[in-house]
Nucleic acid binder design. Structure first.
Lengths: 218, 218, 218, 218
DNA sequence: GATGAATGAGAATTCATTCAT
DNA sequence: AATGAATGAATTCTCATTCAT
């Protein structure tokens, strides 16, 4: 993990952060700030208490705006949910991408990716819940998230195959492998959600699986 | 897959099935039947529409009993949810255990297990939703389910290690591997939840991973 | 207070107590025992938790009989409530009557009555709640109880007047006085319901009021 | 009883009354009006039918607002109950205080207080039920009400003692006497709840008791 | 745009009462 | 008589959404 990597709290792709220097915000800036506040409030609440506990009243209270203001920014509650995972999911992938800068290829890179994911979860424990509950409460966003990650994996493995680091595979197999790896990291994260820390043993097991499988050739 | 293996709809561990011969059921038998009906109704509804849509009114209507009857069998709605995954989860593992009868060991057996799981999901598509939404709506039951499966994996791999089929691993690594494999199958199932059929390509990818990993030795 | 005076737990006007000698109870004896058990259960529950918390299920559980059995003894829940205060109220007045045996007349006797009431409440704290909540949940029984006590007071004061211990009063005044005295003892009991003990100061204040009123003649 | 004294229906300490001149009410004024309507509705229903019959649906219907509106003003039904006796109780004591303006001290004043209470009940018959059922349904409010009245009595009697109108008493005795007097007036009111009118005979009996007690000195 | 009071549809839960065994 | 499962009416409470200010 590099230290100058963005985290959930200091980076927000398109949205403006509060600018303490200027007191005067343009109308549009204020609106964007409100939107940002709503999203951050939602992320905090969903991350800690889950989607079901995330009422409009909770979100607006946390965001410091009036109840009705919510509906100036979102069609309805579902619209917020549909947007939340993309919002935090992009931060997660940016973090991982940044973490992988300069890391080699093949196995080393894949293990680094796994490790970066674990690191992200430790720093942003709310992300885990926003993600896994999305399968229930924002299934389209969840599917899109998975699809986005799957494509990333497929591209990465195509590169690894081209570099000769990795066994040959067709596209359908590659997608299956991407699913397997996503599931692997999700469930490993789940095993350690109490502690928040994924131990080196687990990472080693992952590495070993990637490198040689589990079963000896006969 | 063997054909004479029990499925969700024709086998119910302890609960009595309706006995068409005798018209007269004892009071206790009727009560057990009512319980069974409630559970089956809940399984059907959760499997198709999810826990959130599973209201007491829906369950009792589907079960053909009065609203209040529900509370003769369950403390509250959560109590039903807490019991549902164990109820259907046992059927699932029974199915897999039965499917593995007579199958060899090592890789072959692990691939057969994966395949049996895929087969079970095809026949009982509702199980997938009962399972993954449980993480949200019945987290204790979910954790217990995962723990039960994890322990099964650990035992299976210890046997494989003892038989020399499998690389050596310590307990903590074994548990991590179990998590990985559970995640793998969960996410592969997720990829194909629309079609309900998990293709041979995916099974082949899984087998290849188990056998040799993904990356070539340098 | 005399020691051989009956208390809530060892005396039950007409109802049989369990007879440990004979194992065989006649059908009617068993029925009377069940009735007694239901009443005692109700008295215990109402005394501790109030009428509202006194469900049929609670009463039958406490009495050790089946839910449905209740309706063999009472038309409905209200019928039980209507009978409960008379049932325990008679024990209370019996106690007081017994306590007054041999006590003189006039002021001394009235103070002894007040003191006996306080003593009864200390030993049977549940009575207080059965009584005061009856005004809400069994108003007819409550009115009858009050009427019975009022008449007792009126008779007692007529005797005191005849004996020259007490100022002359007409019947309507006497009834008003009875109400005042009943209210006085009820509210004094209320003041001390936490401790369960009514202090001598309060009794002294009562005595002083009876003896000379509160205000000096001008 | 003075005629220009406020009664339950025309005076409401802090809450605004509808202002027929201005059609436009500010948002806050409307909210206060809604609160007032809910409280008045509750007072009317509890006064006539008791707390148990006072459902949210009844209250909101009577108040002319939607069911859910109730919960904008009260946490739950109990919160309404807890507030109801203070709300009407203050009006009662204000009435009595106003009635006592200009009345002398000592016995005369105490009898006037008793009479004022009787008068209040005649005009506001609902108050009696709101009060006595509060012991069951809003015990904290009931205790606070009693405590408030008790303290008032204690202060009044201290003044009377200082003026030499009244026999000397310590604080504990004074509190007991306050309890006795509160009970006396409560039970006298109870005796006449059917007619709604407390006859002069009863007031005379009360006065006589205050003046000379009940029993002749020997 | 922001505000926050009002709305009312829905869901869970309780429990007195019934009745077949 | 005793039993206890079944019933369903009644009630509380939640909360997304609307809309007048």
């Amino acid at each position: 993990m590099t230290r100058d990597v963005p985290t959930d709290t200091d980076r927000l792709s398109a949205l403006p952060r509060p600018q303490p220097r200027k007191k005067k915000l343009s109308r549009e800036e204020k609106a964007q700030l409100t939107l940002r506040n709503l999203l951050e409030a939602a992320a905090a609440i969903v991350g800690e208490h889950g989607y079901a506990a995330t009422t409009i009243a909770n979100v607006t209270r946390e965001a410091g705006v009036a109840h009705g203001t919510f509906y100036n920014y979102f069609e309805d509650r579902q619209a917020l949910f549909d947007v939340l995972l993309p919002y935090v999911g992009e931060r997660m992938t940016d973090y991982i991408t940044a973490s992988l800068a300069g890391v080699g290829g093949g196995l080393e890179r894949e293990v680094a990716r796994f490790r970066a994911y674990c690191g992200y979860l430790r720093v942003n424990p709310g992300f885990y819940r926003i993600l896994y509950e999305a399968e229930v409460f924002a299934p389209k966003a969840f599917d899109a998230h998975i699809e986005r990650l799957t494509e990333g994996y497929v591209r990465a493995f195509r590169r690894a195959i081209a570099a000769g680091d990795c066994y040959e595979m067709g596209d359908e197999e590659l997608r299956a492998i991407a699913g397997i790896l996503l599931g692997a990291r999700a469930y490993v994260a789940m095993q350690f959600k109490d502690t928040g820390v994924i131990p080196e043993t687990a990472i080693a097991a992952y590495e070993s699986l990637m490198k040689q499988g589990l079963f000896k050739a006969k």
